[in-house]
């Protein structure tokens, strides 16, 4: 399964970035192979508007089926849902720990945005 974790750095040991659209990195983890690769989100981080939407588009292009993050806003959530990507909020610790939390079933599956835009 391909999972994107929002992160403040490019490594498995990097801390989770609680923001989705303006996360520093998206770390794509393939739980079947154990491989990971980081995608720099600098372009959306500095976007004047629409960061969540474009970030969701990026995640879809990366081929992820699931996103683990801290919080997600309404436009990002709508875009991820349209792309059939599951969203789990409340991730914390490192990227590696977030994956473990997810696999242990401890991360809530988001049925809607949990924060307003620009929170």
């Amino acid at each position: 399964m391909k999972i994107v974790v929002t992160a403040q750095g490019a490594e498995m040991e990097s801390p989770v970035d609680p923001r989705f659209g303006r996360a520093k990195y998206f770390v794509l983890v393939d739980t079947d192979t154990g491989q990971h690769q980081a995608h720099d989100n600098a372009q959306n981080l500095n976007a004047a508007q629409g960061a969540g939407i474009q970030a969701a588009q990026t995640v879809a292009q990366l081929g992820a089926e699931t996103v683990l993050t801290g919080h997600v806003g309404p436009k990002a959530f709508a875009t991820l849902t349209a792309a059939n990507i599951a969203v789990h909020t409340g991730a914390s610790g490192t990227v590696k720990e977030a994956i473990e939390q997810f696999q242990a079933g401890r991360l809530e599956s988001a049925a809607k945005a949990d924060v307003q835009g620009h929170w």
Partner: peptide
Amino acid sequence: YGAVASLPNETLIF
């Protein structure tokens, strides 16, 4: 303006 999201099976306009 980031108003368009092009997804694999859908294009969204904000």
